[in-house]
Design a protein around this nucleic acid. Structure first.
Length: 514
RNA sequence: GACCCUAUCGUCUAGUUAGGUCUAGGACACUGGGUUUUCAACCCAGCAACAGGGGUUCAAAUCCCCUUAGGGUCGCCA
């Protein structure tokens, strides 16, 4: 299965941020390359000078790095003149103009392409007419195709504006798609597309063919929306005498409402907007590996059982055989499920690392404390909440009682403190005393608490629930004996006695008012 | 409108290439139960699909045809 000659590429245009569909295309390319021991090339198609920006490029690079989709060749920064790696550069398409010239000449010399003097206005008119007439063929009417080449060359030399069009031959154009199988087009359906604009710059379809050839790309793996470009590109390659690469078209990712995922028209799942970009998922705190797992399974399956994959397992098991032919809707619930699984597989230390930025961002700890005094508390917090996190940022809502004092009790906690005629106050005070000199070890503390409950002749719950209320102020949280390690024994005892005092006060208040 | 592609539980999918082992398997979600100091996690159970119609065949989710539905593409954008 190893074939180091395999070269694949991901070629996003930086007219937008990295989209989920694009990210999955990148992932499948990457997996294919890594599995074969081949080369993964990143090329930025930045020839749309008005819409391309460095910021979008930076987003694409950053997001791919976050996903761990490292490229063997490509740019290293968003700057066109910045450093790059690889022998087939430049990797910004806008820098490659000079490389295309000889191919364009070859095209016209061999008669596989011709000069077209039709104005943009005439083409627009033509298109509108075809639409109005509901014509079945929509495209260029080939008016300039029959012009004498010698004459058109003269006109062009004289400075008359012209484009260069592919002279599509008669016949069939097909290929054996790595995913779809045999696909074929009648050439009569294919327009004499423009290869070179009147300003002399080459168009997308030409440039792709040339870049892929120049970069020695062996396999083009891309979204299904490119399927109809493929016969055009094969025709161009043929016209140049080049061997086209192998093609594989992966089905599109659909939003929860079943339409193609798009940044323009948001789609909703249970009233929640589903992001089409990748960065928001990173920023929300989903683990990269879980996101990768989720994306991989959107349109690919190994078998009828396996669902959880590490990066390495994905590389080992990925193949076109398992890629589905139909588009798939994404389901955020499934992403959350994967995220939970991946987080649960992490060590508390690693979770603590991952969770710290969220805590700092929420203003709960300073960066300095997070690395110093509070590190142990964060590790304890992370470890105790391992089963409760779906994304790293979820830690924030679980952490308030760790970094801030408990100043009030929620309704359920109040109830737990006040029931049984305030017996909790007594229990908490006794417990605070019993805690003296104890280490914050959850196992030992629980053991002690159980025997204390027996000794004091109260149910375990009658002890534990008030403790939870006293220490956290809320009725829902991690196993309560884990909390001591998060807040420290001194703070714990203080909170216990304070809660006891609060109970007394409340009872006094209600007695006097009744 | 034309062309290309696709069609299994609400969702992601296995099964289709080599028709019988499929009263269609798994997962998410949902529902019920168990476990438990709460919430989770975990365990058990349940719900739920071969788009429709014709063929071929002893036998079709699987092969063929039609219909329907969905998606994609039809730029001097990429």
């Amino acid at each position: 299965m190893t074939d180091s000659s395999v070269r694949v590429r991901f070629a996003p245009s930086n007219t937008g941020t990295l989209h989920l569909g694009g990210a999955r295309t990148a992932l499948y390319n990457w997996l294919y390359a890594r599995k074969r021991g081949g080369t993964f090339v990143l090329r930025i198609e930045d020839t749309d000078r008005v819409r391309s920006t460095d910021a979008f490029c930076a987003d694409i690079l950053d997001t791919m790095r976050w996903l761990g989709l490292d490229w063997d060749e490509g740019p290293e920064t968003a700057a066109v003149d910045g450093p790059s790696k690889g022998e087939h550069g430049p990797y910004f398409q806008s820098e490659r103009g000079a490389l295309y010239r000889p191919f364009v000449e070859r095209l016209t010399e061999t008669g596989n392409a011709y000069r077209c003097f039709c104005s943009a206005d005439r083409l627009t008119e033509l298109r509108e007419k075809q639409q109005a007439e509901k014509a079945s063929f929509r495209g260029y009417d080939r008016r300039c195709r029959s012009l004498d080449p010698a004459e058109t060359a003269k006109r062009a030399e004289a400075g008359e504006a012209c484009t260069i069009r592919l002279a599509v031959p008669e016949g069939e154009t097909g290929w054996d798609d790595g995913i779809k199988g045999a696909v074929s087009w009648n050439n009569a359906e294919i327009d004499d597309l423009i290869l070179v604009r009147s300003d002399g710059t080459p168009t997308y379809n030409l440039v792709v063919v040339l870049d892929d050839h120049l970069m020695a790309i062996t396999d083009v793996i891309r979204g299904d929306d490119h399927t109809s470009n493929t016969p055009k590109q094969i025709l161009i390659a043929n016209a140049l005498g080049l061997t086209p690469p192998r093609f594989a078209h992966i089905p599109l990712i659909l939003g929860p409402e079943g339409r193609k995922l798009s940044k323009r028209k948001a789609q909703f799942q249970d009233g929640v907007k589903v992001e089409a970009d990748v960065a928001p998922y990173r920023d929300a705190g989903y683990p990269a590996e879980a996101f990768l797992n989720f994306m991989a399974l959107l349109g690919w399956a190994l078998d009828d059982k396996t669902e959880v994959f590490t990066r390495e397992e994905l590389i080992r098991d990925f193949s076109f055989d398992g890629v589905t032919k139909s588009g798939s809707r994404l389901d955020l619930k499934k992403l959350e499920h994967f995220a939970g699984i991946h987080i649960r597989a992490m060590e508390p230390d690693a979770i603590a690392d991952a969770v710290t930025p969220s805590l700092v961002a929420a203003g709960l700890v300073s960066e300095v404390d997070a690395a110093g005094d509070k590190r142990a508390a964060i590790v304890a917090l992370a470890g105790a909440n391992r089963e409760r996190l779906t994304k790293f940022s979820d830690i924030v809502e679980k952490a308030s009682f760790v970094f801030g004092d408990v100043t009030e009790y929620d309704a359920k906690s109040e109830k737990n403190l006040l029931k049984n005629e305030g017996a909790a106050a007594d229990v908490l005070r006794k417990y605070a005393v019993a805690l003296e000199g104890k280490a914050p070890d959850a196992g030992q503390l629980e053991e002690q608490a159980r025997s204390l409950a027996e000794e004091w002749d109260v149910k375990f719950g009658q002890l534990v629930h008030p403790i939870r209320a006293a220490l956290t102020g809320v009725a829902v949280g991690p196993p309560i004996f884990d909390v001591f390690a998060m807040i420290g024994m001194d703070a714990a005892r203080e909170r216990l006695t304070r809660a006891a005092a609060w109970v007394d006060e409340r009872r006094k208040a209600t007695e006097s008012s009744s």
